[in-house]
Design a protein around this nucleic acid. Structure first.
Lengths: 350, 350
DNA sequence: TTGTAAGCGTTATCAG
DNA sequence: CTGATAACGCTTACAA
């Protein structure tokens, strides 16, 4: 017999059976309606004790796992928070992500993570793809975005927090600190200790606006403090590694032989440079002073220990998460912009 | 007029309008059916050029963002890969996550990330919540799970890859290396350089089975190499920080004054210990040799540079991702278990 | 306190 | 090559 002889009833469209346990299965097992199962899960206080018990039992017996996609379709809430950071690996941003996770997961949210590699186009791509998931909130790691990114986010009408930056204009919420000021504080510190021929050595990749802000702060300080002259060394395209720092130190010796201090845009570079000096027998800070940025774990332990700026990566994540959470719940926030600050940590290297 | 006077037609249940642009909106705008819009997005080759052009235009004009939850409901595929690592912050696992992201994102998958803090109960919780999202694949970071976790995963019938470990039994796929062997290699190295009174110093938190495996390797080596005796220092509950390493070094001096070498379960501890020695004026390796584990960026740059084991965190992520990808596509995999190996890196500290 | 029905936005299936 | 329709599993709105 060919399939054409089948009854009209058989024409009902059937998808491949999911074989997954659904809410209805649980309901049947417990002898209630699906709606009641849903209530037991969302608003247990509205369900009678005996019914509630039977439902929970059925859930355990059937190993029921709720389908969040269906839940999202029906309720228009996803339980997802999306976060975009510049880079995940071996970076200070990992501390921020950890803090985000520490706050959001206990609240029942899941964390969708992406990295833009300091590329605004990649960020746009990520935002577009994340928005398709209908996140309840979005965490970005700078205030610099393409116009399309901005439009997408505003169109999505969800709470957004921009972090690791400090600007006058922002989309919705902002948590961070001023990198310009941070650089200035380092410069003031150098000058207070008698250094005046100061080199700035930092990555100036197109998308790293934080490093650029630090450079801006350096330049302003050179002018304001009437220092000798600008001495800038850019590490374009160099990976964030200690090897880059060591290499850069050699360039300092070659290009600015009279320099008495170097301000690196990251502790990673600074540590590489410092250890390179130790190996060469160059005295730090006797022959040249060094300061970094970030206060990494190793910075306090180096010999000599590294002068740096502590930036509270965890605080940024925690603060941003709590602020976003409040907005996601529709609660009023005291301030939509929070400066978590930074801290100069003077140590032996300067 | 009360609402009761309204026409029956008004009784139609209306949810709060999403205000979001849907596929139907795009279809209307382009003068085609929703199905055609879907085809343009999923199987463009099946759609005529002119129609395709009109649809793409409409998508851009309306700033259409597809709803993945709906897509998932209909297709039973989520486009999500979930990954669970022990800890995100300041850790070698961040490199693995980066590699996962580097492979999955270009393939159109989104990464759902969670950390279990070496706690199997937390892992179970995470797996349960992640499975509700219907991930197309799952990445775990050890082969140790609760029974319930195992049952959940097997019940979900999705590809899983367990990483950072090497065992005979595994759920589906495995990518990693043997920590027992890695420890043995370090011990062989110490002995070949004349050290025989070797201390093992490592975290033995309940859930850190990798550190435990290294301890197992150490113990086996002491026996096999007929060394003086076991010298074990456990850092229970200590954070993975250089400060812990320095502190532990003091304990070595106090508890094992005759020790001639120390094997730390992480480069972080080893570096803290090494720098502590430098500060105290204790010669490394003259007075005592030091080796670590992980080959962090700083390890090569320390003075003296740190002997360690390189473990290829990025390779683990890349290999795991590609293996999982193959299985998710239903492709045959040559081997379901891949040893990415490790590498002894002898340096000045031993 | 519990149940019924409609609807969320997409894709699989079948028809043309 | 394009369209109509049912179905995915859940929650909102309403009824009882």
């Amino acid at each position: 017999m060919t399939s054409q002889t089948q009854t009209p009833n058989n024409r009902r469209k059937r998808r491949t059976a999911t074989s997954r346990v659904t809410m209805t299965d649980v309901a049947t097992r417990a002898g209630v309606s699906a709606q009641t199962v849903s209530r037991v899960l969302r608003q247990p206080e509205l369900v009678g004790d005996e019914v509630s018990r039977r439902v929970r039992e059925a859930i355990l017996e059937l190993q029921y796992v709720p389908n969040f996609a269906a839940s999202q379709m029906a309720s228009n809430r996803s339980g997802i928070v999306a976060a975009i950071i510049p880079t995940i690996s071996a970076s200070i941003f990992a501390d921020t992500v950890q803090a985000l996770s520490d706050v959001f997961v206990p609240e029942g949210y899941q964390l969708l993570l992406g990295n833009n590699e300091y590329d605004l186009e990649k960020e746009e791509e990520l935002v577009r793809s994340f928005l398709g998931r209908g996140p309840d909130g979005l965490v970005l790691s700078s205030t610099h975005h393409t116009e399309a990114t901005r439009a997408l986010i505003l169109g999505a009408k969800i709470p957004v927090v921009e972090t690791w930056d400090w600007e006058e204009t922002y989309l919705d919420l902002m948590v961070g600190h001023s990198n310009v000021k941070a650089a200035r504080v380092v410069m003031d510190h150098f000058v207070s200790r008698g250094y005046r021929r100061i080199v700035f050595a930092g990555v100036t990749n197109a998308g790293d606006f934080r490093a650029k802000a630090r450079l801006t702060g350096y330049r302003a300080a050179v002018k304001a403090l009437e220092l000798d002259r600008e001495r800038v060394l850019t590490l374009t395209g160099k990976p964030l590694s200690m090897a880059s720092g060591a290499e850069t130190m050699n360039r300092v010796f070659a290009e600015f032989p009279d320099a008495d201090a170097v301000f690196f845009s990251s502790d990673v570079f600074a540590a590489g440079a410092l250890l390179h000096c130790v190996r060469l027998g160059v005295s730090v800070p006797g022959d040249i002073a060094i300061a970094g940025f970030g206060d990494f774990d190793f910075s306090a332990h180096l010999v000599p220990s590294l002068t740096t700026v502590s930036v509270h990566a965890g605080d940024i994540g925690r603060t941003a998460a709590n602020l976003l959470l409040a907005r996601m719940r529709g609660e009023a926030v005291a301030s939509s912009r929070i400066d978590v600050g930074f801290e100069l940590v003077p140590r032996e290297s300067s």
